[in-house]
Nucleic acid binder design. Structure first.
Length: 883
DNA sequence: CTACTCACG
DNA sequence: ACGTACGTGAGTAGG
C-alpha cells in the first residue's frame, strides 16, 4: 500500500525553531530548526515507512490571499533572521535525505497540500499530513490523516474526521467556519471580535456554518447579536481566507514523490557540517562509515608476554597513551587495556590489561607509577581511580585532553575522544558507541578491533595535545589548567579513594523508624482518600486530589496536574490529606534516596562510600558528585539532617571537621563589582542580609525585623542568580510590581552592582562569553537571540556564571593548597568531601586544634580579594555535629 | 527514555 | 507582552 507523507515545511520549521533552544555550531550558524526538522524526518521515516514523500514550502511574499485582503498575515512578527537563515540549510538537508520538495510562486504550502490531498481523496491514496497548523484539519478525510505537532516537535496528535468530531463536534469542512467566527490573530484574520473558540463552537453546533449563523443572527439577542451583525462581512471574509485552495495548477503525478531512502554519504557530511554529533553517533550511514578511519593508517603492535620486556624502555620519558575504562563508576570499573604511542618508530603498542597486571607487566606498571615519566591522556581522574582499585598508581600526568577540552568549552555535552577529534579538526575516529554498543548491548570487541580502536584513541590524544595547549594559551587558561584543574584531579582521586565511613547500622535503624512512620501516614492517606492508590504517582495523586476530592487545581504540568510542594502547601488548609502527603513525600524521599540509596553504595568490606566528583560537567566550573551524590545530603529540615549522623570518622578517636565559606558568592560579587556599599558591609564584617535590609529600607540595624531581613536575603539571592522581578516575586510570594520596586531600591543603593550587571551583559554580547576571576570561560551564544526567553536566560547566566564560577575557582584553589599543606606538614588529617562552599575532613584528636586554625586560614587566603574571605569551622563526632 | 519531584549549594 | 530565578543528581512512574 502506497503511503504519502506530506510535511508543511514552513510550519514545521518554525515549530522546531521555537520549540528548541537556539543551538548553533562552532562557526556561529544557527541550527535548531534544522535539528528539529531532522529529528522529525527521521522519526517519520522510521515509523511511517513512507513510499512517497513531499515537503511543501510557501513561495514569495505575496499570495492571492493578499490581493483579497491586504492585511493578511500583517501584524505577524517578521520571521527572525535566526530562522530565515536556516531555510537554505533545510532545503540542503532534504536533498541529502532525497526527499522531494516543492514550492510555487504565489501559493502557500497549504494550497499545494490542499491540492495533493484532494487528488488523494479522489484516487483513494493514503496520506499523512504533518503540520503545526490546526487549519490543516479541514483537509482531513478517510484517506488523509492530519498530524498536528503538540508540545515539542516530534510529538504529534493525529486526526481523522472521527477524532475531529470527538474533539470539536465538527466535520472537517466546518473548521473554516470555526476560524471564520473566531479569527486567527497570528494570520491577522479578524473573525468576529469577542467570539473565541467556546462561543464559535456553540454557534456552529447550533447552526452549522458561518452563513447559517449570520442568517439566524436576528434570533439572537444582546451583545452577541450586535457583534455578529456588525462583523458579518469580516466573518465571511475570514472564512474565505481560512479556506485552503485545492486547485493549484501543478503536477500531481504520484510517481514524482516516490521516496527511495536517504543518501547516507550526503547525510553524514551534512550532519558533520551542522555538528549534529549525537545524530552522527547514533545513525547508521551504511556506506558512509568507510571513509571515517581510512584517512590515517596506524602501525599497531599488540604486545604479548614475550614482547613486553622491551616496551617500558621504548616508552621513554614522555608519551601519549589511552587507558580504556569500562563502566560508569570508576570505583568499580574494569580496565580493558592500555594503548601507548611510541615516538621511536611512530607506532602504537597495545597492552591487554591481563598482561599489564601479570608479573611480566610489572615494568609497565612501574612506568605508569613513575612521576618522572610524563603522560598525556584523556581523563586522568577516571583512569587513576580505576587503576588504583586494581593496585596500580597513576602518576606523572602532564596533560589531560578531557580537562583541557572542558575548560575550552564547559558546556560541551559530548566530551569524548571522537567528539574532540571532530571538533578540533583531527582525523576522524569511530565513536565508542559504534565500537562497543551501548546500554545492554555493550560488548568489548575481539582483540584486533579493540586494539585498533584504543590505539586510534591514543593517536587522537597525541594529536590533540598541542592543539588544545595552544587554545588554552589563547584563552589565557594556561594557569587555570596547569596550576588548578590538573593538580585538583589528583586531589579529588585521593579524597574519593579514601572514602568516608558510614554507620550502616545507624542508617538501617533510621530506616526502620521512617518505615514505621510511613506506614501510619499511608494508612491515614488511604483513609482520607477513601481508596488505596500509588502516592508516588503524580498522575494518580492528581486524580485523587483534584477529581475525586475536588480540591482546586492551580498549576498544570505538560502531562496533567502539578502536585509539587508549592501547590500542595497552598492546598493544605482545604484538607488534612494534603499535609499528610507532604509528610509522606518528605519521608519517602529520605527512605528511598538517602537510606536505601546510600546503603547500596556502602562497601561492605570497609563500611565506606566513595563518591566520584565529576570535574567536567558543570557549566560554571563547579564539581558535581555521583555514586552517591554527597553534595545533597539533607540539612534544611531536622528529620533529614539526622542522616548526617551516620557520616563518621574512619578511625576511632578521630573527628569530623567541616569548614564553610561565609557568603562567598556575595563577597565575590563585592570584589568583581567593586560596589562601595557591598565592600563596606564585608569590610565591617556585618550580617549581609541585615545590612542589605538597612540600606534598602533605609532603617537602623535595630529596626530591621525578621520580615525585612527575609526580603533582603531573597533579593541577595536574586542578585546572585541574575535578578528578575518575576523570579523574586515568586520567591517572596509578592506581586511583580512590588518585586520590581524592591530591586529598584536595591540598585539605588548598590549602584556598583547595577553597573556590573549591565556591563557583564554587554561584555557577553560583545565577546560571546563571560569569565571568572581565574579566566574560566562560559560561552553564551543565546545572548543575541531574538527570542525573549532564550536571550533573558543567557543574560541571567551572564550575571550568575562569573559569580558562581569564581566561587568554584576559589574553593578549588583552597583544596589544592590544603592537600599540599597536609602533605608538607606531615599531617594525618584527610580531606574527604567538598560541598561547593564547604570542605569536610577527618582529623585525629591531636591535630584538632591545628586543623581548626589552618583550614579556615587556607580557605580564606586561597585567593586575595578586595574584601576578606571568611570560613567558619566546627567539628564533632559526626558530620551532623560539625555544624 | 522522559517527566516529575525533591535533595543540596 | 513575553514567563524564569543559578548550578547539580537521584528515585519513581509510566509510556
Amino acid at each position: 500500500m502506497d503511503k504519502l507523507v506530506i510535511i508543511d515545511g514552513n510550519s514545521i520549521a518554525s515549530r522546531a525553531f521555537y520549540a528548541l533552544p537556539l543551538l548553533s555550531n562552532s562557526s556561529g550558524l544557527h541550527t535548531n530548526a534544522v535539528y528539529g526538522f531532522t529529528t522529525m524526518l527521521l522519526k517519520l521515516i522510521e515509523e511511517e515507512k513512507p513510499t512517497h514523500f513531499l515537503v511543501a514550502f510557501d513561495a514569495g511574499k505575496v499570495t492571492f490571499r493578499h490581493k483579497e485582503y491586504t492585511e493578511y498575515k500583517g501584524g505577524r512578527a517578521k520571521t527572525p533572521p535566526e530562522l530565515s537563515e536556516q531555510f537554505p540549510l533545510i532545503k540542503e538537508l532534504l536533498k541529502a535525505f532525497q526527499i522531494p520538495q516543492f514550492e510555487l510562486q504565489g501559493y502557500e504550502a497549504d494550497d499545494i497540500i490542499g491540492t495533493l490531498t484532494r487528488v488523494a481523496d479522489e484516487s483513494g491514496k493514503q496520506v499523512l499530513l504533518v503540520s503545526g497548523d490546526k487549519d490543516m484539519l479541514q483537509l482531513s478525510s478517510d484517506q488523509v490523516t492530519v498530524a498536528i505537532t503538540r508540545k515539542g516537535i516530534t510529538e504529534v496528535e493525529r486526526y481523522n474526521p472521527a477524532e475531529i468530531m470527538e474533539k470539536y463536534g465538527l466535520e472537517p469542512k466546518q473548521i473554516v467556519d470555526l476560524k471564520g467566527l473566531m479569527g486567527d490573530t497570528s494570520d491577522n484574520i479578524p473573525g468576529i471580535p469577542g467570539v473565541g473558540e467556546k462561543t464559535a463552537l456553540k454557534l456552529l453546533h447550533e447552526y452549522g456554518s458561518v452563513e447559517e449563523v449570520l442568517a439566524h443572527a436576528a434570533e439572537m439577542k444582546g451583545k452577541m447579536k450586535e457583534k455578529i451583525e456588525e462583523h458579518a462581512k469580516d466573518a465571511m471574509m475570514s472564512k474565505e481566507l481560512a479556506t485552503i485552495f485545492r486547485e493549484v495548477p501543478m503536477d500531481t503525478d504520484w510517481a514524482t514523490f516516490r521516496y527511495e531512502g536517504y543518501d547516507g554519504q550526503a547525510l553524514s557530511s551534512m550532519f558533520r557540517k551542522l555538528e549534529f554529533k549525537t545524530l552522527l553517533e547514533k545513525m547508521d550511514f551504511s556506506g558512509g562509515e568507510a571513509d571515517i578511519e581510512s584517512a590515517v593508517s596506524l602501525d599497531i603492535e599488540v604486545i604479548s608476554e614475550a614482547g613486553i620486556s622491551g616496551l617500558a624502555h621504548a616508552l621513554g620519558d614522555s608519551t601519549s597513551l589511552h587507558i580504556e575504562i569500562v563502566g560508569e563508576n570508576p570505583h568499580h570499573s574494569e580496565v580493558a587495556g592500555v594503548a601507548f604511542y611510541l615516538a621511536d618508530g611512530d607506532k602504537y603498542a597495545y597492552v591487554p590489561f591481563e598482561l599489564l597486571m601479570s608479573e611480566a607487566g610489572q615494568p609497565i606498571q612501574d612506568w605508569l607509577s613513575d612521576e618522572s615519566k610524563k603522560k598525556q591522556l584523556f581523563d586522568q581522574h577516571r583512569a587513576e581511580l580505576a587503576l588504583a582499585w586494581h593496585g596500580v598508581r597513576l602518576r606523572g600526568v602532564d596533560f589531560d585532553v578531557l580537562l583541557a577540552a572542558y575548560l575550552l568549552d564547559p558546556t560541551e555535552s559530548t566530551l569524548t575522544v571522537s567528539g574532540l577529534a571532530f571538533k578540533y579538526g583531527l582525523p576522524g575516529i569511530r565513536p565508542d558507541e559504534d565500537v562497543f554498543g551501548k546500554g545492554a548491548k555493550f560488548r568489548l570487541p575481539e582483540l584486533a578491533a579493540l586494539s585498533e580502536h584504543l590505539c586510534r584513541k591514543a593517536d587522537t590524544i597525541r594529536r590533540a595535545v598541542p592543539v588544545l595547549r595552544e587554545e588554552l594559551e589563547k584563552g589565557e587558561m594556561h594557569r587555570l589548567f596547569y596550576e588548578l584543574e590538573l593538580p585538583l584531579a589528583g586531589v579529588l582521586a585521593e579524597m574519593e579513594l579514601r572514602g568516608i565511613k558510614v554507620d550502616a547500622a545507624g542508617l538501617r535503624q533510621l530506616g526502620d523508624e521512617i518505615a514505621g512512620q510511613l506506614e501510619g501516614i499511608m494508612a491515614r492517606i488511604y483513609q482520607l482518600a477513601g481508596c488505596e492508590f500509588n502516592i508516588n504517582s503524580p498522575k494518580q495523586l492528581g486524580e485523587i486530589l483534584f477529581e475525586k476530592l475536588g480540591l482546586p487545581a492551580s498549576k498544570k504540568t505538560k502531562t496533567g496536574y502539578s502536585t509539587d510542594a508549592e501547590v500542595l502547601e497552598r492546598l493544605a488548609p482545604y484538607s488534612e490529606i494534603v499535609g499528610q502527603i507532604l509528610q509522606y513525600r518528605q519521608l519517602a524521599k529520605l527512605q528511598s534516596t538517602y537510606i536505601e540509596g546510600l546503603l547500596k553504595e556502602v562497601r561492605p568490606e570497609t563500611g565506606k562510600v566513595h563518591t566520584y566528583y565529576r570535574q567536567t560537567i558543570a557549566a560554571t566550573g563547579r564539581l558535581s558528585s555521583q555514586y552517591p551524590n554527597l553534595q545533597n545530603i539533607p540539612i534544611r529540615l531536622e528529620e533529614g539532617r539526622k542522616i548526617r549522623k551516620v557520616f563518621v570518622p574512619s578511625e576511632p578517636g578521630w573527628y569530623i571537621l567541616a569548614a564553610d565559606y561565609s557568603q562567598i558568592e556575595l563577597r565575590v560579587l563585592a570584589h568583581i563589582s567593586q560596589d562601595e556599599k557591598l565592600k563596606e558591609a564585608f569590610l565591617q564584617n556585618m550580617d549581609i542580609h541585615t545590612k542589605t535590609a538597612m540600606d534598602v529600607f533605609g532603617v537602623q540595624e535595630s529596626e530591621v525585623d525578621s520580615n525585612m531581613r527575609r526580603s533582603a536575603k531573597a533579593v541577595n539571592f536574586g542578585i546572585v542568580y541574575g535578578i528578575s522581578d518575576y523570579g523574586l516575586s515568586q520567591n517572596l510570594a509578592i506581586t511583580r510590581k512590588e518585586a520590581a520596586s524592591f530591586i529598584e531600591q536595591y540598585f539605588a543603593v548598590f549602584q556598583g552592582v547595577r553597573t556590573y550587571m549591565d556591563d557583564i551583559v554587554k561584555d557577553a554580547r560583545r565577546d560571546g562569553y563571560v569569565t571568572t576571576l581565574l579566566q574560566r570561560r562560559r560561552y553564551l551564544p543565546e545572548i543575541t537571540a531574538s527570542n525573549f526567553n532564550l536571550r533573558s536566560f543567557a543574560e541571567r547566566t551572564a550575571m550568575n556564571s562569573p559569580i558562581q564560577g569564581s566561587a568554584a575557582d576559589i574553593i578549588k584553589l583552597a583544596m589544592v593548597q590544603m592537600a599540599e599543606r597536609l602533605k608538607a606538614d606531615g599531617l594525618k588529617s584527610r580531606m574527604l568531601l567538598q560541598v561547593h562552599d564547604e570542605l569536610v575532613f577527618e582529623v585525629p584528636e591531636e591535630e584538632l586544634e591545628l586543623m581548626k586554625r589552618i583550614v579556615p586560614e587556607v580557605m580564606a587566603d586561597a585567593l586575595k580579594l578586595d574584601v576578606p574571605l571568611q570560613a567558619d569551622v566546627d567539628y564533632g563526632l559526626t558530620w551532623y555535629d560539625a555544624k
